[in-house]
Design a protein around this nucleic acid. Structure first.
Lengths: 209, 209
DNA sequence: GTCTATAAGGAGATAGAC
DNA sequence: GTCTATCTCCTTATAGAC
């Protein structure tokens, strides 16, 4: 045994600081990006000394990694919570519309989420593992939930449910990227309803045949 | 008249340097991102002194702006060249497949283009005007070309051609983002053909009714 | 216009007291 | 574990010679 003198209370204090550092770093990284965020400012935001930041996380890259993994867990909750309170057995057309509309409303108004996606994509060349954490823990679960729904509804007569999910998710996500993150809403105006209706019509088209 | 002593040859030399600076800066910005790119390295890459860089572009932000606008013009050519050599009047199903496949093949293998999109999205919070230049000069023209095709083919019986274009473009672009830029191809494997076939089937489905 | 040299400040990271 | 103080290096930007 090592002479660990830290009591529970002391460890709690230390963990509280670690948490404060993560939150402060999160704020700074999301605001300025990885390179432009400074460890000085992060320490100030977290109300600890810079040395404490380094004793907890070693270096800037490790801190960034910890922050992103925290964010990934956080946003995973968001994605999962998105589909839950659905009236379970309605017409697919209505269910799909609701899912699409809710997803757009939630993400288009969530600046924090947009900053998160910005940093994931922006740093995906230099931090490929973090990009893959996003794919594995956010994109994949989202895709799989919708995929299960499609497979559970054979009346949709989808030739390739998995590829169809990609159509739906890609349409919605790139729409948010263009309209909000890239500030394109005045250049390429289009209402949520028109996009979602078109999407659900394409997918449920067989019903009309 | 001011006593402009610059002859044509001298101006050419100066413009050649400006071009070299742009190209060097492009390389560095695409590789390291805006904040992590250094003016020292940019000057070295362009084989001029740092003072020359500043005399041409004023400061780092202006240089970045010039670089991105150059890239936007460049990539506009790519987007326009993408649709050109199409056998004009084939079945829509085949034309759409060809457009989709070609787009995926071109962009999935073009690391330079991916770095460009990375920096546009990554810096879109801090440089909204540059993001809008991308939307205006690349996304919009691409969308409009496809839109014209859809509108010129009423036999597709599309309720909302403009929204349908967004479905197609969003599906393809987000696919490239997920598979290549975010390194998701081993986590969420899917072949180009399956995505494009699903997409074209959804859009041209009426033909089967 | 272009260079060398340098200013002025901020960056990441650590030493050493407590 | 946490702090203050500091080290060292690199950053953007400019002054002044040619």
């Amino acid at each position: 045994m090592t002479n660990t003198k830290t009591t529970n209370k002391e460890r709690s204090k230390s963990e509280a600081k670690a948490e404060a550092i993560i939150k402060g770093a999160m704020q700074e990284f999301l605001k300025h990006g990885y390179a432009a965020a400074s460890m000085d400012k992060i320490a100030k935001t977290a109300k600890v000394s810079k040395a404490t930041v380094y004793s907890h996380f070693g270096d800037k890259e490790s801190l960034f990694s910890a922050v992103v993994q925290d964010l990934v867990k956080d946003k995973f909750q968001t994605v999962m919570g998105l589909q839950k309170p659905q009236s379970l057995e309605q017409e697919p057309k209505i269910v799909l519309s609701q899912i699409g509309m809710r997803m757009l409303e939630n993400t288009r108004s969530d600046r924090n989420f947009q900053d998160f996606v910005r940093i994931i994509i922006g740093e995906s060349g230099r931090f490929p593992q973090l990009a893959q954490a996003y794919v594995r823990n956010i994109a994949k679960p989202g895709i799989e939930i919708l995929s299960q729904y499609f497979k559970a509804h054979p009346e949709l007569k989808l030739d390739d449910p998995e590829a169809t999910v990609r159509v739906m998710v890609g349409t919605l996500v790139y729409f948010v990227i263009l309209q909000e993150m890239l500030h394109g809403q005045d250049i390429l105006p289009l209402e949520n309803e028109r996009l979602v209706n078109t999407l659900t019509d394409l997918i449920t088209q067989h019903q009309n045949c």
